[in-house]
Nucleic acid binder design. Structure first.
Lengths: 208, 208, 208, 208
DNA sequence: CATGAATGAGAGTTCATTCAT
DNA sequence: GATGAATGAACTCTCATTCAT
């Protein structure tokens, strides 16, 4: 069956419309409490129509996760970043991560994270497809950075990267939880985090 | 109506038995997918009995959260910690936090976190009763530490504390998600984190 | 409105195409489990098109039944058969019935029978239009046969005919159920049945 | 878990109550058209209660079939029948089969037959557990009868038995379809059938 | 006349909650 | 206080039917 490109576009548009609605509905009530009717109502279509585009409710969740993945991957021309010094690199890296978070809307992470904590199948997918790639580039960079003496050689790179990423994840969680400091100073965070991570919270040695 | 203390103890024992079962059941299947029958089966009692001790299913979740609070608060004689230097204090503080996490079992955070991300009422309670107190002591200490020049005075204390806590939260999330680095090196994390936070990931100045 | 005969033929062709598809689809999944989409797919047309030719799903079933009727009636020039002796007549009659069954495909009886057992409206139609006519001719013949002494006069003709027809129906059912003896020896059955019915299963009197 | 015999009886009673209701409801509307609500209404209980006793709607059908099996098997002390002459044996056998049909109520066969024609899984079960055993005894007897010269030795026993059983099945079908002759003379059928099968419909040789 | 996306009523099924025992 | 059978509202999903294109 030859694919009509216009048909294909219409189908994609409808799928996106439904996924947008699902994101909204799931974020408001949570995946389980939100019904297909809720999603349909938000999308402004009949409930049955959703099943012309998605096999079942779970597929909606998967669809949201897939779209998230695409966004995550869509960028990251990191070739230049490897030439930067530690500070600039870290700064760029964190800014980029925060942009991705901000652009996607936090709802999407709210949904995905809360389900991922519960559903072990989803968890495996999420780890492999979202979390791990988030580590990948930095891991590559830091390995080189250690080699060239930019970073302390006694460090456990793998673990330290987890801690760094954990910080980003944790900030996201606190943001979703509604912490006012985090929400209010969202844009300053990447740079503050850069400083904190590179130099620590102690006063500069020379200052004492 | 005077309360019979023995009756009271029996009631508390039964409540705890049910909450333990609920924790187990919710952790396995998630709050929504776990049924009251599941909880009852784990507890070794009839489903109806649960309703003699808890108003409804939501109350089970609240009960779990309350018990978590009690644990969090049960300790923390921090009076001595205020006399410590920055490194020792931070180390103590992080070790303490990780102990609490480990002792409670991660399941409980898995349950609470996933629901808290969804349910805005629960979220408000959780923020006020669990997250905020976790900040409180440190906030107090660091304010003093800045005053006495132990910490760089240009820092945004409130925000920096959020970032620190975010790291702990994020580590917990990654642990729940099953990250192998985090799981394998769990016990080393508090100390590594202490170093990283205080000194940063840059090599010591003198090394260059 | 004068009917364009070419139009009429096209319509009939399309109706037959759809009924063929419906027969196939219904036989595979059963009337209820087969969807209009299934029928459309087998027919190679769109689902909506079916509704240009049939009022609803039930009408498809009726259409199948009607076509069955036409086949049943299409032949049966029985004028010569009345001149035959009992054995030849019975043999011809049974062979003819089995041909009809075989030609139509058993699927059609599978569909019709299963629905007829359930739907009382359909049942009335089926009785009046299919079963009863099947009796008619034979009834006529046997009445004459009794009159001329070819058949025992103490017999209850009407009932005996039902039993004979019942045998044919039952054989069909067993065939649909997949009985191996019946399936394997299908072609021998009319003649065996002729012998059995006329002479019984007892050994010939003279043999003893 | 030790089984409380009174509990067990109550459960069986409720199961039977539900199966009775299901038989009624399915016979009226057919298995597919009858809803669980219909069954519940007939049984005078809530729809959900049915699911405490049967896994799903299919299990209701299976339950009906199982009860039918039990009835079929409940009897048949055929040891004496083997001593009978052909006529008495056949008469007893057919009478017995008709009794079973009559006692169970025709609805049950209406339901089972119509589903069995459609569902190939069910068909296999039905063949193995209901139809085949119905053949078994007779097959045994007739084999002996042929050996002792009571039945013509040129007969294909296996096939002839199918034809006999087919007749019973066919009579049942015609009865369900509402044929008046069959319904009206139901009780005479076994004996008439006996005569017809043994002696054929031809007039006795000596009569000519 | 053909199409097939959209519809929404209605089905089977689950499960929190109640209450007679 | 403990039980667990009964309840029925609410959910997901299916599919006959319609109708704009």
């Amino acid at each position: 069956m030859p694919v009509d490109p216009i048909q294909e576009q219409l189908i994609q548009a409808r799928r996106n419309q439904i996924l947008d609605a699902a994101t909204t509905a799931f974020a408001q009530k949570g995946y389980h409490r939100a019904t297909i009717q809720d999603v349909a109502k938000v999308a402004g279509i009949a409930a049955g129509t959703i099943y012309n585009y998605f096999e079942n409710k779970t597929a909606l969740l998967m669809g949201i996760l897939e779209r998230l993945n695409e966004t995550e991957r869509r960028d990251d021309d990191m070739s230049q970043m490897l030439k930067m010094d530690s500070h600039t690199f870290t700064q760029h890296y964190l800014r980029r991560r925060f942009e991705v978070l901000t652009q996607n809307g936090f709802e999407i992470f709210q949904i995905v994270l809360s389900e991922v904590l519960i559903d072990s199948d989803l968890r495996a997918i999420y780890m492999a497809q979202v979390i791990e790639p988030t580590f990948a580039l930095a891991e590559n960079y830091y390995a080189q950075a250690v080699g060239s003496g930019k970073i302390r050689s006694d460090a456990d790179i793998a673990l330290m990267l987890r801690l760094t990423s954990a910080t980003v994840v944790g900030i996201l969680v606190l943001r979703i939880l509604g912490d006012r400091e985090i929400v209010g100073k969202w844009d300053q965070i990447p740079d503050l985090l850069t400083t904190m991570m590179l130099d620590g919270i102690l006063p500069p040695k020379g200052d004492v």
